[in-house]
Measured scan of single mutants.
Amino acid sequence: VGDQVLEIVPSNEEQIKNLLQLEAQEHLQLDFWKSPTTPGETAHVRVPFVNVQAVKVFLESQGIAYSIMIED
């Protein structure tokens, strides 16, 4: 199991704000291929294997929908 690319769908401005804060966490080494800008629009982010669980827990705790787009 390696890195994953998640497709994330924020449903409101609050969730977009939370994702932008997540993007700013440099220690997570997230690679946003497509940043969140509009509710209902997908964002794509590559998550290093060591941080996959932490990111998924965060998304679930914020009620942000996501799916695994690419499993490496």
Rank of each mutant, 00 (worst) to 15 (best):
K56P: 00
G63C: 05
E26N: 12
P36G: 04
K17Q: 13
M69L: 11
I64E: 00
Q53K: 10
S61P: 00
S61Y: 06
T38C: 08
Q21D: 13
H44N: 05
L30G: 02
T38A: 13
K34L: 07
V52N: 03
V57L: 13
E60Q: 06
I64Y: 03
L19T: 01
V50N: 11
V1K: 11
T42E: 03
P39M: 05
Y66P: 00
K17D: 06
S61F: 06
L20V: 07
H44Y: 15
Q21I: 12
H44R: 15
N12Q: 02
Q53F: 08
S61G: 07
D3F: 14
N51L: 08
L19M: 04
I70W: 13
L20G: 05
L30S: 03
D31H: 15
M69F: 11
I16Q: 02
K56G: 03
A65Y: 11
V1N: 14
V52Y: 08
N12A: 02
P36E: 03
H27A: 09
E13M: 15
P48V: 03
G40I: 02
L20M: 11
V50Y: 10
E26G: 15
Q21P: 01
L28C: 08
A54T: 10
D31Y: 15
H27M: 08
Q53D: 14
L28A: 03
L59S: 00
V1P: 12
N12H: 03
N12Y: 02
V52R: 03
L20E: 05
A24I: 09
L19S: 01
Q29I: 05
M69W: 07
S11P: 01
I16Y: 05
I68R: 03
D31L: 09
V9M: 13
L19A: 01
V50D: 12
Q15M: 04
F32E: 02
S35L: 15
E71F: 07
E26V: 10
V47F: 01
V5W: 15
A24M: 10
V47W: 01
E13G: 06
L20R: 12
L59A: 00
T42F: 05
W33I: 14
F49C: 14
I68D: 04
S61C: 09
L6T: 00
P39L: 06
G40R: 04
Q21K: 15
M69I: 10
I16E: 01
H44T: 15
Q4V: 15
N51P: 01
K17C: 09
T38Y: 09
F32Y: 05
Q29T: 06
D3Y: 15
F32M: 04
Y66H: 03
D72H: 13
K56V: 12
I8R: 00
P10E: 01
N51A: 10
S67P: 01
I16W: 05
F58P: 00
W33V: 14
Q29W: 06
V55S: 00
V9C: 14
Y66Q: 00
E71Q: 14
V1H: 15
D72V: 14
T38Q: 11
E26I: 12
V47K: 00
I68K: 03
Q4A: 12
V57S: 13
N12M: 03
P39W: 03
L22E: 02
E60H: 06
S35D: 05
E14G: 07
E13H: 12
Q25S: 10
A43D: 01
S67H: 05
V52W: 10
K34T: 11
F32W: 15
F58K: 02
V1A: 13
G63V: 02
V50L: 12
T37G: 06
E26S: 12
P48E: 03
E41F: 06
E60I: 05
G63S: 06
P10I: 07
K17T: 11
L22G: 03
P10R: 01
H27P: 05
L19I: 08
Q62S: 10
V55I: 07
G63F: 04
M69E: 04
V1C: 15
F49I: 12
Q15P: 00
Y66E: 00
R46K: 09
A24Q: 12
P10Y: 04
H27T: 06
K34C: 12
Q21V: 11
S61K: 11
P36Y: 02
A43V: 15
V55P: 00
D3I: 10
G40W: 06
D72S: 14
I70P: 12
T37D: 05
V57N: 12
G40H: 06
N51G: 04
L28F: 10
G40V: 02
A43L: 15
L30V: 10
D31K: 14
Q4C: 15
A24H: 09
L59K: 00
Q29H: 15
L59W: 01
E26M: 12
P36M: 05
V55W: 01
Q15I: 02
V55E: 00
I16F: 07
V9F: 13
E71W: 09
H27E: 11
T37W: 09
E23G: 13
D72G: 08
K56Q: 06
V45P: 01
E41G: 05
K56E: 04
F49H: 13
P39K: 04
V45E: 00
W33R: 09
S67Q: 09
I16D: 00
S11I: 14
F49W: 11
P10L: 08
R46D: 02
D3C: 15
E41L: 06
I68N: 04
L28G: 04
I70R: 05
Q25P: 02
A24N: 08
E14T: 10
E41V: 09
T42I: 13
Q4G: 04
E71I: 05
Q29A: 09
R46S: 08
T42D: 02
D72L: 13
E60S: 05
E13N: 10
N51Q: 08
S35A: 12
V57K: 10
S35T: 11
Q29C: 13
S61T: 11
K17R: 12
V57M: 14
S35N: 08
F58V: 04
V5H: 08
H27V: 09
A65H: 14
L22M: 05
A24Y: 09
K17L: 12
D3Q: 08
G63K: 06
V57R: 13
G40L: 05
Q15S: 03
L30F: 04
E14I: 08
L20I: 09
E71Y: 10
L6S: 01
L6G: 00
A65P: 13
T42Q: 05
L6F: 15
S35R: 15
W33Q: 11
I64T: 01
A54D: 06
Y66S: 01
L6V: 04
Q21T: 10
E41A: 09
V57E: 14
G2Q: 10
I70F: 14
Q4M: 14
E7Q: 12
S61H: 08
Q25C: 13
E23P: 04
H44P: 02
K56Y: 07
E41R: 05
L30P: 01
S11N: 09
L6M: 06
A43K: 02
V9S: 07
S11K: 11
P39N: 03
S61E: 11
E71G: 09
V5Q: 04
D72N: 13
V52P: 00
E7L: 15
N18M: 14
S35Y: 14
Q62H: 14
L59H: 00
I8M: 05
S11R: 11
Q62P: 00
H44I: 15
T37R: 07
K56W: 03
S11L: 11
I68L: 09
Q21L: 12
F32P: 02
Q25H: 07
A54E: 11
E23K: 15
S11F: 11
P36C: 04
V45G: 01
L59C: 02
E13P: 08
Y66M: 01
V55F: 13
N51S: 11
E26H: 13
V47S: 01
Q53H: 12
M69D: 03
M69S: 05
L6A: 01
V47R: 00
L30Q: 01
F32K: 02
